Simulated assay, not measured.
Amino acid sequence: MSEFMENRETVPTTLPEWLLLQAGQQPAGIALRHKHLGVWQVRSWSQVATQVLSLATALHLRGFTSGATLTLLSRPRPEALLATLAAQWLGGVAALLDPLDAASDQTALLEQLQPDFIFAEGLEELQRVDAAHLAPQLVFYADGRTVTGNADGQGRWVAYASLVGQVPNLELPTRGHSQHTAFAFYRRAEGGTLEQQRISHAELLNEGRHLVDVQQLGIHEEALAARAFAAGGQARYLLAPWLIAGFRLNFPESLATRDNDRRELGPTLVAGTRETYGRLHALVLTRLPPVGSWQRHLVEWALASRPGVVRRVLGDWLIRRPLRDVLGFSRTHAALLVGDALPENTKAFFALLGINIQGWPDPGQWQPRPRASADRVDGWINDGPQLA
């Protein structure tokens, strides 16, 4: 693998090229951590690069070419990220469906997209693929605990482990270009119209570099990926900075455990949405003492908007610090808000805790999907105009 990395371009212009750069500069450094069965599993930058190349080799052998699209149905997990980078390695596009979408909505979206290449997390997602009556060229899945044998016995579903075990082709170059689409996002608008949003490698890297510079992010950052990049803002302000700055990216065990995992991890970088911070605000409110109790009076005393020196010091020790620990913000120095602004009460609450949430725009625009793309999601997406 080291011999292959020596042949990479000097200036990275795509996400996979940045992966190769990090693997060359800090091969033993921790790139990914994933909590599985209560234990944090670790992958180094060298391991990630090797596994991505193995996946790219396997996809290439199964007919995935430049301009093709890999559609991903998954909650946060490293396998989805590595599959994304493998598709982009080959000059393809990663189309991520939001893991929080209802099963029926996701099935309807799949019916309209009719994708050829699909990554599914587990049996639940595989059943959605079947329910959409698709005829894909390849479907592979990550979680085989509930998938017995070779899926339905007819070889229609392939285990992720068998693909990542492919011997990597060290002669397989990265085929993407800076202006190619890296990510595609889709949604069904009112009336069932299919809308799209696309982001190029150049756009991601430009905005990622800007964030790294402004926030002064380095290799020692810890970030939590709780939405699996199924929104443009997460790709802009978490995935791209991860590759550029070379810090550690952590995946929770599941969406249900993300808050507990955040508390345990104590990330230094948090990239959340209006919904993320609103949910955390509500979580803290449910844990406050009853209104009127002396404990509640103590909380209100400590969280005064303009405390004196004594109140500020005692309030931080007694209330603010424990509440930051509850939220998992004990070490956070970069709390980012991606997209829509926060309600004033939520913004004020975090400010009282000493957490400065900084807004970063999500400039992606939803556009009607061109009719010329026919019935499939593959083969056209890199040829269309890029979004500003």
Rank of each mutant, 00 (worst) to 15 (best):
A184L: 12
T181I: 15
H220R: 12
T107V: 15
D378P: 01
F229C: 02
Q114S: 10
L288A: 01
Q215Y: 01
G328W: 05
L19V: 11
L353V: 11
G63F: 11
A58M: 11
Q215N: 06
W366P: 10
T332L: 06
W360P: 03
A23I: 11
L73C: 06
N382Q: 04
D98W: 04
W18D: 09
Q127A: 09
D105A: 08
V129N: 02
P368N: 01
N169F: 04
A151W: 11
T286K: 10
W242T: 13
L298H: 06
Q358K: 12
Q47E: 15
A182D: 04
A335W: 06
E6Q: 15
L32W: 04
T346S: 03
F117H: 01
L134C: 00
L342I: 14
G38H: 12
W40P: 02
A245V: 07
E221R: 09
L387F: 03
A223P: 00
I357D: 06
N345E: 14
Q367E: 15
F183W: 11
W40S: 08
T346M: 07
R331Q: 13
T273Y: 06
R128V: 04
H220A: 14
G379H: 02
P343Q: 01
Q88A: 07
L81H: 08
A159W: 03
E6H: 09
D152H: 10
R258H: 14
Q295I: 05
R248S: 14
G63Y: 08
A271E: 07
P168E: 13
P267L: 12
R376F: 05
L285A: 09
W18R: 14
V164K: 03
Q137L: 09
A256L: 13
V48L: 13
G63A: 00
Q179S: 10
N150V: 14
L255K: 03
T332Q: 11
F350N: 01
S200V: 14
R175W: 00
L85Q: 00
V158M: 10
H36A: 12
R236I: 01
A108E: 13
D261E: 09
H36L: 13
H133R: 13
D101T: 03
V284Y: 04
L238C: 00
P385N: 01
G315S: 02
P252F: 02
D375H: 13
L243A: 01
L21E: 13
N260V: 15
G308R: 00
Q358N: 04
P370M: 04
P16I: 08
L110Q: 07
E6D: 08
P16A: 04
T276H: 07
Q106W: 00
F119A: 01
R209T: 12
A95T: 02
E300P: 00
F350Y: 09
G153H: 05
F64K: 02
I219F: 02
R258F: 00
W294R: 12
W89A: 03
Q216L: 11
Q295E: 11
G339C: 08
L285V: 07
L21V: 13
S2W: 05
G272M: 06
H36P: 00
F185R: 09
A135E: 11
E344L: 01
A94H: 02
R258T: 06
A86F: 01
D316K: 08
G278V: 12
G354I: 11
G176S: 10
V52D: 00
Q47W: 05
G218T: 15
S54K: 03
R187N: 05
A161G: 09
I355R: 03
A351M: 08
